[in-house]
Structure formats: structure tokens, C-alpha cells
Design a protein around this nucleic acid. Structure first.
Length: 299
DNA sequence: AGTTCCCTGAGG
DNA sequence: CCTCAGGGAACT
């Protein structure tokens, strides 16, 4: 379940590891991985150097100098691994990219085959990493994304929800409103902001939006520092698990005591997703005086 | 805005 | 055997 913090961790592992390296070849072991292109289009990568790797929402953008741009979405079980050259491929390995220097190779694994790869033709002008919009940002998958939650002001953040009446949990998952939040972090952010997940956006007051914005920043930044959450399949580019799952307050803790008030955590279904919250700390339409929850000691 | 589906593995 | 996990598209 790579969400923003996991994808950010992967990008931070890939960028220094891949920058300026020349691609020697590609092996597409599961052709449906590649959307709107064929394995032949990947041949345009050979001989090109990687200009940089960046993140947009939950997507990973790899730009090549004078060559195509690759966009990966890992969905739930996708992994990008920097492997030893000739490292064994298992039945879940979908793509291997090799490099001229043979220092390492890039493996894409995906148990459930939900992930996808775009190979976007080079734009006539810019190919500098991270600056020019280039091919990537104008493709449908990226163009539809809302802003980065860590790059907006509290007013911009609240403005993205203006006029929406749906339940806040569902809106946090909507990538066109704000990009990068998935099921785990939506629940953790709402707990931190003490907002009940079914609260209609229209009934969140001004201070509620500021709290939600602050909690979004706090939780995502903490999770990035912990290199993400490993609940099931997520590992970074070295195959290592994250550590933020040990800091989860509500996600996957049904029936366990709230770390703030010991009330058992509830699980409900919102927007088709399991949703965990503390029925005491996250009461509906509750005016909250203090911004800070004091955590009880563990056990 | 809610439901179904894609897919595979884990757990009951 | 069954259900569940969940990002996002496609449907109703």
C-alpha cells in the first residue's frame, strides 16, 4: 500500500542510485504492465541517461535525457528494487532495467498486477529533471492530480474541499483533491485532527480545516522520516521495511485501546474502505478546545 | 456517491 | 472453502 510517504522513500532511494546512469536494456516480463505503449517503445530507453527521479502523488516519474519518461504507479503491491546485476527474478518480477555500468539493476515486482507503467515519448524541448513540465505532467494520469499536500498553504488546502458535501474520509482519498493520501494515512490524519471520518466536509469549520492541514503535514512528515509503513508488502528500494506502522494510532487496530484514552478502536466502512477511528477522541461535530492529544504510556 | 471489478496471497 | 486487503477505473 505505497502512499505518499512510501513512494517518497522509494524516490529518495532511486534518485541518487539512478541519476546519470545509462540504460543498457529492458526486459518486460509482464507486457500488460505497460499502458498505451508496447515493449518496442521501451527500446528508445537504451543508451539514454537518467536525468532524475521524482514523485507526484503516489506516482514515480523517471526522466531520461533525450529519451522517454517513465511513470510508475505501484498501486498496492508494487515494488521497485535496486538489485545486484543478474539477481534472481521470481514469478512476481514484471520488469527489469539494466544499466551500462552493471553496478546494479532495477527490478519492478508486483504480486497483484495492479501497478502500471507509462512510457511517454520525449518532448521536443526540455528534459531536465524536476523543473520542466515535460511529457509527464501533461499526461492524463498526472494532470488530473490535485496539489501536493506538503506544498500547499492551509487556505489552499481547505479551498480544495470547498463546496464538497461528501464525508471527509472519502475526500481525503480522492487524488484529484489532494494527491498522495491513501487509506492508512487518511485514518491516521483524521485521528490526529480529531475529526470523525464520516463528518461531511461542509460541517468542518475554519479551525477544523487548519487542524486537518496541520495534521496532514505532521503525519506525512513523520511517516517520511520513519521511511513509511510496512503493513503487508511494502519495502524500500533496498528491500527494507518501514517503521511508521509502530506509530499507527488507529489503522488496523480494531478493538485495541486508543493510545490516548483507552477506548476500543472502531472499524467501519467508508467509501468502500476499512476505516478505523477512536469513537471517543473523534466524536462527530465536537468542538475541540485543545489541539494536542496527550498519549498514554504504552501498556 | 456507492458498488463492482481487476488480481493474488493470507488467514479463518 | 470463504473473506479480506485496497488504488482507482468503470459502472450504476
Amino acid at each position: 500500500m505505497p502512499e505518499l510517504p512510501e513512494v517518497e522513500t522509494i524516490v529518495r532511494g532511486l534518485d541518487p542510485g539512478l541519476r546519470e546512469r545509462a540504460i543498457a536494456g529492458t526486459e518486460l516480463l509482464f507486457p500488460p504492465l505497460l499502458r498505451r505503449a508496447s515493449a518496442r517503445d521501451l527500446a528508445a530507453l537504451v543508451g539514454k541517461r537518467i536525468a532524475g527521479v521524482r514523485r507526484r502523488g503516489k506516482m514515480i516519474v523517471i526522466e531520461c535525457r533525450g529519451g522517454p519518461t517513465l511513470v510508475f504507479h505501484l498501486k498496492m503491491t508494487g515494488q521497485l528494487l535496486l538489485a545486484e546485476p543478474g539477481a534472481p527474478r521470481d514469478k512476481h518480477t514484471r520488469l527489469v532495467i539494466t544499466f551500462a555500468d552493471a553496478a546494479s539493476e532495477l527490478h519492478f515486482r508486483d504480486i497483484r498486477k495492479f501497478g502500471f507503467l507509462l512510457c511517454l515519448a520525449q518532448t521536443p524541448h526540455g528534459t531536465r529533471a524536476g523543473h520542466d513540465a515535460g511529457a509527464a505532467d501533461t499526461c492524463a494520469e498526472l494532470a488530473s492530480l490535485g496539489p501536493e499536500p506538503l506544498a500547499v498553504t492551509s487556505d489552499e488546502f481547505a479551498g480544495r474541499f470547498a463546496g464538497k458535501k461528501a464525508r471527509i474520509k472519502g475526500l481525503l482519498l480522492d487524488q484529484t483533491i489532494v494527491a498522495g493520501i491513501g487509506n492508512i494515512y487518511a485514518d491516521e490524519i483524521l485521528f490526529d485532527a480529531r475529526i470523525q471520518p464520516e463528518t461531511p466536509a461542509s460541517s468542518i469549520g475554519r479551525e477544523g480545516w487548519v487542524r486537518l492541514w496541520k495534521s496532514t503535514r505532521r503525519i506525512l512528515n513523520k511517516a517520511i522520516r520513519a521511511k513509511g509503513s510496512t503493513v503487508r508488502d511494502y519495502v524500500d528500494t533496498s528491500g527494507r521495511a518501514g517503521r511508521f506502522q509502530f506509530s499507527h494510532r488507529v489503522y488496523d487496530r480494531e478493538g485495541e485501546p486508543c493510545r490516548a484514552c483507552r477506548t476500543p478502536i472502531k472499524r467501519i466502512r467508508v467509501a468502500g474502505r476499512s476505516t478505523y477511528f477512536c469513537p471517543s477522541c473523534q466524536r462527530k461535530r465536537r468542538r475541540v478546545v485543545s489541539t494536542h492529544i496527550t498519549m498514554l504510556p504504552k501498556r
